[in-house]
Amino acid sequence: MTPARRRLTFIGLGFLSLVVASTLALTAFEDNLVFFYSPTDINEKSIIADRPIRIGGLVKDGSIVKSNDGITVRFEVTDLKYSIPAIYKGPLPDLFKENQGVVAEGQLTEGIFRAKTILAKHDENYMPKEVAESLRKTGKWKGTGKN
């Protein structure tokens, strides 16, 4: 074996073990690396309820109810399998709409999620308004977030 060959093998093997180690570590930490839990996670995995968590999903169609005080809003976070009712008091980001992604930070008590912070999650689609409308009309795409 030439010295260069030997160094190549050494570096190759070293890198391979590094990849294996990081894969194992990342898999082990899986639940701590997620930014939010989905309603399914909450219902099917035993997520501790009495600490602040983040839940994420879509704002359920037709679920937004604004209170008379003007700053309290009730809505449901859904992943189309389970939904969790949520309540929030405060200013909302522009992209907070029905059928649009949302991440809420707060606490789940007695089945109701009391959100302290609301973050809007936008999707990976970019297009002009006319295109979005025509796609919806032809039924090729259901689209998120009604305007």
Binding site: V34, F35, S38, K121, E124, N125
Partner: peptide, 24 residues
């Protein structure tokens, strides 16, 4: 793709339309 993130997934490696309109 591996974890839930606030950041949205990639637009360009997706094959099904629509992700990014040609004008963009």
């Amino acid at each position: 793709d591996w974890w839930n993130t606030l950041h949205q997934p990639a637009s360009l490696s997706r094959l099904d339309a629509p992700a990014i309109d040609p004008s963009m």
